[in-house]
Simulated scan of single mutants.
Amino acid sequence: MDTKELVLKTLKESEEPLKAAEIAEKANVDKKEVDKAIKALKKEDLIESPKRCYYTAK
């Protein structure tokens, strides 16, 4: 499973929006990798940001 899939899975399992650092901690992935995955997932329109620096799966 690549980082993007891990980030998306973590967000889908969470009941509330998460910050990149929280996603990194829960998915056990480096925060820089999470940041890259978030950018790609936003471009693909798979996640959204309900408030600044927080993310949730669509």
Rank of each mutant, 00 (worst) to 15 (best):
D45F: 05
K32Q: 11
E44K: 13
K32M: 08
E15M: 06
E5S: 15
A24T: 06
E25P: 01
K31Y: 08
Y54M: 03
E16C: 00
A40P: 00
L8C: 07
V29Q: 09
A40E: 14
E48S: 09
D35I: 02
Y55S: 02
I47D: 05
L18T: 07
E44M: 12
S14K: 07
K26I: 11
A57C: 09
A24R: 02
E5R: 11
L11P: 03
I38M: 04
E15S: 12
K39L: 12
K42M: 15
S14F: 04
L46D: 03
E33Q: 13
I47G: 02
A57D: 06
Y54H: 15
E16H: 09
D30I: 11
A24M: 05
L18K: 05
A57Q: 09
Y55N: 06
L8T: 03
E48K: 15
D2H: 09
D45P: 01
E16I: 11
E16G: 02
L8F: 14
I47S: 06
L11C: 10
V7P: 03
I47H: 02
A37L: 03
L46I: 02
K31S: 06
R52D: 06
I47Y: 06
T3S: 10
S49D: 08
K43N: 13
E48R: 13
E5L: 12
N28P: 00
A37W: 01
Y55E: 01
V29E: 13
S14I: 04
E33W: 03
V29K: 10
E13S: 14
K36L: 07
S14V: 06
D45A: 14
K43E: 15
E22G: 10
A40F: 04
N28E: 14
A40N: 13
V34T: 07
K26G: 01
K19G: 09
V7A: 10
L11V: 08
A24K: 03
P50S: 03
N28V: 05
L46A: 08
K32W: 08
Y55I: 00
V7F: 11
I23E: 00
K12N: 12
D45Q: 12
Y55F: 14
K51Y: 12
T3V: 15
E5M: 12
E22V: 05
L18P: 06
P17W: 02
M1H: 13
D35V: 04
K9H: 10
L6W: 05
K9C: 02
C53V: 13
A27P: 02
P17L: 06
K51M: 09
L41A: 12
K58E: 13
D30P: 01
K51S: 14
V7W: 04
A57I: 10
E16Y: 05
K9D: 14
D30T: 04
E13H: 07
K51P: 00
D35C: 02
R52I: 11
D35A: 09
E25N: 13
K51V: 07
I38G: 04
E25M: 08
L46K: 15
L46N: 07
N28L: 07
L8M: 04
E5P: 01
K36D: 05
L18C: 10
A24Y: 04
A20D: 07
E15P: 04
T56A: 11
P50A: 05
Y55K: 01
K36P: 00
I38V: 13
L11K: 02
K58N: 14
C53W: 14
S49R: 08
E48I: 07
T3P: 04
V34K: 01
K12R: 15
E15V: 06
E44Q: 15
E33D: 14
D30Y: 11
S14Q: 04
